[in-house]
Write a protein that binds this DNA or RNA. Structure first.
Lengths: 327, 327
DNA sequence: TTGTAAGCGTTATCAC
DNA sequence: GTGATAACGCTTACAA
């Protein structure tokens, strides 16, 4: 990698002049500019971002902290973030937190050490010390707390819709799979579902779970049908869990949706590939990622922000694990 | 963020001394060390990686270039990479290339500008100029070329196995879905399958495709059954495409696996959740990611490398889209 | 319009 | 054992 000094020498000017043409500020004579540009091209020069970052005390790097990229919901989020960021020449430092406080602080630490100018995080602890007083903008993605900048979907409404659609389609004995208690969207959905079920007077059961992992979900699916064999409607905590439930139901010889209806959350790509395809509450993950990136950019650039809180509407996607109903 | 200078002042020593205790090199008196350590703790000091990186002309950053994190195969790879790297305190700068040469060079460029010490890439153009003479170690992941450091699975053998297992289970009229021509593993699989089919004298058709995307796959699935309605065995280019084929087959009223057997590649998590669950050729993606990270670390540290070429064996995973056979 | 030089936060060399 | 100080590659006053 050529340095600014080499370019300067090649062009017969000082480094300051090279810097000026690179950054297009300050006066520089047309002829010198051309000489410098030639030298730059000649030497294939690109500025060292590290030196730049050191001087300006800020980089073009943004930290992204996701619980687990292996969970099919997050790649979409990540992709949205990345696409938007790269349009503005920002780069991403990425880490999986595994919902571990320790990993989270470690990553935040190194983000800071690398002069990142902002962080986007799907944390379960937005109120933790490590975020307050970070010194750089933070956007919570798929999470929210008070009036911190955040991009998320309306989980509570999602829960309500899920319950309502099941009831509307004839389920009278619903089981709600309650996701991890420390994951905010999971609880929102749960409370939304309970709310709708209570107000419609539908009887329901609750099965508590502690993660969204594929393998564990299979266990819960079994437990569900063991403990609540009469369920005729199941609100899963997300699509992964719903898939496991669907598989177990079919394995048990239940007809879906005739005997039991199943509904998930997120609308991950897998959902439409299942047979029967999964009815679910859609969240615009890719869009949300983009929006989070957009928000952090505006925050970084100190632009006026109309709303730091961006809530997306959710939408019921009717597929084959719920019954048809007259419209 | 406190600086080394502030720590030095607080401890009543010079920055050199602070640096010595930080890096545990050079002599430093037990008492001074303690003073410095106290000051460090007091001020919550962590060294600025940017300044470090500038001076040493290398960072703790590694670039990871994947085609598309949204394709369910890649998150596993990425996770393996990340897990291993973070054990050694390396961080990841991540980008999606979309198989675009332009994006790829752009990312590589900025990786370099950020002093990354190594790159892990799933590129289709390992022989491209941008990689030769990058100046830092590169590991190709899920790709390979000549004797460049690479971690990949035995695609050809995978193709052979897929074909062999189908034939062994009675398919006599197989259709191979040929993946994108510029994606090496796709072609390896294809050639492997053709090889096995030829040598067993089984008749087969080929359907060419150009991507692995969910949505396009649905189109190809339709085309497949339109053009080759008599297929009784289908070798998909990967699990995504296999899922689309499975869905289409079921939609058309074909019984799987009685009327038509289907086999995929990769063994992404989705595969076991399908109903019927998908028989496939397994690749140890997470392990491969870890191994790639391990290899790049060894390369960076200049360790002796026994083999720069790490090929993983593949394995047939028998599930429900292939028939049972006497053992 | 251009050049000189200080400074960003480290590490390493060399005196002392 | 410890402290000055140059250097890493850049940007930006300030001078000229």
């Amino acid at each position: 990698m050529a340095t600014i000094k080499e370019v300067a020498k090649a062009a017969g000017v000082s480094v300051a002049t090279v810097s000026r043409v690179m950054n297009q500020n300050g006066y520089v004579h047309e002829d010198t500019r051309r000489k410098v540009e030639d030298a730059i091209r000649e030497l294939n020069y690109t500025p060292n971002e590290v030196a730049r970052s050191l001087y300006k005390r800020k980089s073009k790097l943004i930290g992204l902290l996701l619980p687990d990229i292996t969970n099919p919901y997050f790649p979409q989020l990540a992709r949205g973030v990345e696409d938007r960021l790269q349009e503005q020449d920002f780069r991403l430092i990425f880490g999986n937190s595994d919902e571990s406080r320790q990993k989270e602080t470690d990553y935040l630490q190194t983000f800071l050490q690398n002069n990142v100018v902002g962080v986007i995080s799907s944390t379960n602890a937005p109120d933790h010390d490590m975020y307050t007083g970070l010194g750089i903008p933070v956007v919570f993605l798929d999470r929210t707390l008070n009036d911190n900048p955040a991009v998320y979907a309306d989980g509570r409404e999602g829960g309500r819709q899920a319950a309502t659609e099941l009831v509307k389609r004839g389920s009278t004995n619903i089981t709600i799979i309650q996701g991890p208690a420390d994951v905010r969207p999971a609880m929102d959905r749960f409370h939304g579902a309970v709310e709708a079920l209570e107000s419609s007077g539908t009887s329901y059961e609750v099965l508590k779970t502690t993660s969204f992992s594929f393998t564990e979900a299979e266990g819960w699916a079994k437990e569900l049908f063991r403990r609540y064999p009469d369920s005729d409607g199941i609100i899963a905590s997300n699509d992964i869990v719903a898939s496991a439930v669907l598989q177990e139901a079919v394995g048990l010889g239940r007809r879906v949706p005739q005997d039991v209806q199943i509904i998930g959350f997120d609308d991950i790509p897998l959902s439409r590939l299942l047979i029967p395809s999964l009815s679910t509450i859609h969240q615009p993950a890719y869009e949300m990622g983009r929006e989070a990136a957009d928000l952090i950019i505006r925050l970084i650039e100190g632009q006026y922000i109309e709303s730091r809180h961006i809530q997306y509407a959710v939408e019921f996607i009717e597929r084959q694990t719920t019954r048809k109903v007259e419209s």
